[in-house]
Design a protein around this nucleic acid. Structure first.
Length: 594
RNA sequence: GGAGCAGUAGUUCAGCCGGCCCAGAACGCCGGCCUGUCACGUCGGAGGUCGCGGGUUCGAAUCCCGUCUGCUCCGCCA
C-alpha cells in the first residue's frame, strides 16, 4: 500500500506516530518559511506542515505544487500548537509534520474550482465529471446512494425477497414509452428493445412461484428528458404474490421508513396518507399533489352555470369547468403579468383574476359578472379583505393543468413551502383508462396489466358489448384500477398495482385498449399463455430510485445523484456518446442510415 | 415538435434602451514578499475569436435574422 491510513481518519490517537499517507492537495498555503498542505481523500482532510528551516530543498520544491495534484507524504503526526486548532475538520487537533513528499501526479490548472460554494455551469460539470464528482457534495451524494442500495438489498433480503436479474435485451412491446432498440446481428432486420421496466418478467417470476422478487433495475425510455427524467434510470422494483394493495403499500412504507431513519435520521410516520385520484385532481389539479401547502382549488362551475360572461359561458357549454385559487396577498401588476405569461406557456388563453381591497371586489372581469355571482363566489371562497383570486375556465384537463401548476408557482412565490418537510402521500383509485383524442382510442393509464377493481369488470364487459365510441369515452373514466402511486413533496417517486392474473380479464382489457386478439397473441402471447397455468394473484411497485435519492439529498435534478448523467439532448458530455460508428459495424448489423 | 432563460478572461459574473468598453470585477493563474494559516495576507503581472454565421449602422458585446450548446417547462414520459 502507498499509504497507512486515510488522511480523513487521522485523529488525536495518532499523535507521535510516523505515518505514510496519500491524497489530493485540497489547498496549499505558503507563508514564507512555513508551508501548509491540506491533503484530502474520500474520508476527509488533514493539514500537513513543512518548515523551510527544517528542509529548505524540499520546501522550495513543494511550494510550487498545485491544487488537486496527487502526492504521498511521510511524516509524524503531532498536536497542533495551542490556538491553531481547526474545529471545522475532524483531524483539526493534529497535523502531519512532513518528512518526505512524493509527487505522484501533478495536476494542471483546473477548468473550475473544486468547491461546493461555487456554482459551475452544467456543461462544464458534465464534461469534467470526474472533477465535479470530487466535490464534497457530490461525494456525499454518491456515498449516500450506495448506502441506500445496501439498505434496500438488506431490507428485501430480510423480508424474504429474492434479487433476480431480468434481461436487458428483450422484445419490443407496444404501449408505453418509446423503446431503445438494439439491432440483432444474427437476425437481419430484427431488433431487441431495452426494457422500460422489468414489468413482464417480474410477473412471470410470480407465476414461477418465487413469491417475492426485487431488483435494483436499470430502465430505459427513449423520451424527451426533464430534470427528473433520464433516458436510463434506476428503479427499485419489487413484486409479491398473494397480496392486495395494502400489503404492497405497507412493505413500501417499511422500506422508506428504514431508508429515512438510517440515512437521514428521520423517523417517518406510517402509514402515509391516502388520497383518491379524483380528490387529488379536484383539490390540487395534479395526480401528484404537493401537500406541504394549501391553496386548494375551489370549484365555481355551478355558480356560473347561467352566466353571461362569455369566457365562462363558452367553457361550460363545452363541458368545461370553472375553478379558482385564492391567496391571502394582493400581488403587483407586474407579478400578475408574470403569472399570466406563465399560464400562457401552459396553454391558457389568459389569466382572469380579482382582488378584494378596501372591502371591495375589483377585477378586469367584474363588469361581466352579476352581483349575485360575485357574492356567491366570494362566499364559496371565503374571500376576505386583501385577498386575491385566480380563475380558470376550460375543459377539466386544462383547468387542472393550469391551476395545478399555478398553485405550485404561487406556493413557491409566496414561500408557502416548508422545505424541511417530507410529505408522503399515496394516490389511489386511478382510472384504468384514458381516452387519447389524437389516436381516438383508450389507453391504459398505468399499464395494460393493471387489474381493474373486481366490481368494475362487469362494466368492461358492458362497454365491449355496446361498442359505442361515445359511450366508451363517457364510461371508461369510472372504471377504477387497482393502482397506486406514491408521492413525496409533489414528486411521483413510485407506482404500482395489483396485476391481472386471469387470462380472460387480460384479454378483456386488451380488447378495450383496441389491441386485437391477433396482436395480443403476437406481442403478449407468452404472458397470456403463462396466465393459464396457475398464475397467483400478485402485485408490486417500483420506486424511481434516482428521484427518491434527489429528494432525500435536497437536489432539484436527478442528474446530481447519478454519477454519469446525460444532458437534456441525451448526450454524454464526458465521453461524447452517442456517436457515429464505422460503416463496417453497421454492415454487420444489417443497418443503413438515412 | 414548441416556449422561455443563459452563453463576455481558466471560473463566477457585471456591462447589453448602440459611441463614455481597442470590455471590467472577484476568484484562479504567474512572479515577489511574508514562520501558524486553514476562503491566509500583501505587492506586481499575464490573460478575452464578447458561442458561431450573417445583417442593420459612420460605429455592434449591446439592435435584427439564423444557428449551435446547456438548462427549465409544454407536448411526450403505460
Amino acid at each position: 500500500m502507498l499509504r497507512d491510513i486515510y488522511v480523513g481518519l487521522v485523529d488525536d490517537s495518532f499523535i507521535g506516530k510516523e505515518i505514510k499517507v496519500a491524497g489530493w492537495i485540497d489547498s496549499i498555503r505558503d507563508h514564507g518559511g512555513v508551508l501548509f498542505i491540506d491533503l484530502r481523500d474520500k474520508e476527509g482532510k488533514l493539514q500537513a506542515v513543512l518548515e523551510e528551516s527544517e528542509n529548505k530543498e524540499l520546501y522550495d520544491i513543494a511550494k510550487h505544487f498545485k491544487e488537486e495534484s496527487v502526492i504521498a507524504i511521510e511524516g509524524v503526526v503531532r498536536r497542533r500548537p495551542s490556538g491553531t486548532e481547526n474545529p471545522k475538520i475532524k483531524s483539526g487537533n493534529v497535523e502531519l509534520l512532513i518528512q518526505r513528499i512524493k509527487l505522484l501526479n501533478a495536476s494542471e490548472t483546473l477548468p473550475f474550482p473544486i468547491d461546493d460554494n461555487v456554482e459551475i455551469s452544467e456543461e462544464l460539470r458534465l464534461k469534467y465529471r470526474y472533477l465535479d464528482l470530487r466535490r464534497n457534495i457530490m461525494q456525499k451524494a454518491i456515498k449516500t446512494r450506495s448506502k441506500a442500495l445496501k439498505i434496500t438489498r438488506d431490507f428485501f433480503d430480510e423480508n424474504g425477497f429474492y434479487e433476480i436479474e431480468t434481461p436487458f435485451l428483450i422484445k419490443s412491446t407496444p404501449e408505453g414509452a418509446r423503446d431503445f432498440l438494439v439491432p440483432s446481428r444474427l437476425h437481419p432486420g430484427k431488433f431487441y428493445a431495452l426494457p422500460q421496466s422489468p414489468q413482464l418478467f417480474k410477473q412471470i417470476l410470480m407465476i414461477s412461484g418465487f413469491d417475492r422478487y426485487f431488483q435494483i433495475a436499470r430502465c430505459f425510455r427513449d423520451e424527451d428528458l426533464r430534470s427528473d427524467r433520464q433516458p436510463e434510470f434506476t428503479q427499485i422494483d419489487f413484486e409479491m404474490s398473494f397480496v392486495e394493495e395494502e400489503d404492497v403499500m405497507e412493505i413500501s412504507e417499511k422500506l422508506l421508513y428504514k431508508l429515512f431513519l438510517e440515512l437521514l435520521g428521520i423517523e417517518l410516520k406510517t402509514p402515509f396518507k391516502r388520497m383518491p385520484y379524483k380528490e387529488a385532481m379536484e383539490k390540487y389539479g395534479s395526480d401528484k399533489p404537493d401537500t406541504r401547502f394549501g391553496l386548494e382549488l375551489v370549484d365555481l362551475t355551478d355558480i356560473f352555470k347561467n352566466t353571461n360572461f362569455n369566457v365562462f359561458k363558452a367553457a361550460i357549454e363545452q363541458k368545461g369547468i370553472i375553478k379558482a385559487i385564492k391567496i391571502n396577498t394582493i400581488l403587483s401588476r407586474k407579478e400578475i403579468d408574470n403569472l399570466t405569461e406563465y399560464v400562457k406557456g401552459l396553454g391558457a388563453k389568459g389569466l382572469a383574476w380579482g382582488k378584494i381591497e378596501n372591502g371591495e371586489f375589483s377585477s378586469p372581469i367584474a363588469k361581466f359578472l352579476t352581483d349575485q355571482e360575485v357574492k356567491a363566489m366570494l362566499s364559496r371562497l371565503e374571500a376576505k379583505n386583501n385577498e386575491m383570486i385566480f380563475f380558470s375556465a376550460d375543459k377539466p384537463k386544462n383547468v387542472y393543468k393550469i391551476l395545478g401548476n399555478l398553485r405550485l408557482q404561487l406556493g413557491k412565490m409566496l414561500k408557502l413551502i416548508d422545505h424541511s418537510k417530507f410529505e408522503f402521500l399515496w394516490v389511489v383509485d386511478f382510472p384504468m383508462f384514458e381516452y387519447n383524442e389524437e389516436e381516438g382510442r383508450l389507453e391504459a393509464m398505468h399499464h395494460p396489466f393493471t387489474s381493474p377493481k373486481e366490481e368494475d369488470i362487469e362494466m368492461i364487459i358492458n362497454i365491449l358489448d355496446k361498442n359505442d365510441k361515445e359511450y366508451i369515452i363517457n364510461t371508461c373514466e369510472s372504471i377504477t384500477a387497482r393502482a397506486y402511486d406514491i408521492v413525496l413533496n409533489g414528486v411521483e417517486i413510485g407506482g404500482g398495482s395489483i396485476r391481472i392474473h386471469k387470462p380472460d380479464v387480460q384479454k378483456l382489457v386488451f380488447k378495450l385498449l383496441n389491441i386485437s386478439d391477433e396482436e395480443a397473441d403476437l406481442k403478449f402471447g407468452f404472458l397470456l399463455e403463462a396466465l393459464k397455468y396457475g398464475a397467483p394473484p400478485h402485485g408490486g411497485l417500483a420506486f424511481g430510485f434516482d428521484r427518491l435519492m434527489a429528494m432525500m439529498l435536497g437536489f432539484e435534478s436527478i442528474r446530481d445523484v447519478i454519477a454519469f448523467p446525460k444532458t437534456q439532448k441525451g448526450t454524454c458530455l464526458l465521453t461524447g456518446a452517442p456517436d457515429v460508428v464505422p460503416e463496417k459495424q453497421l454492415k454487420e448489423l444489417h443497418i443503413k442510415t438515412v
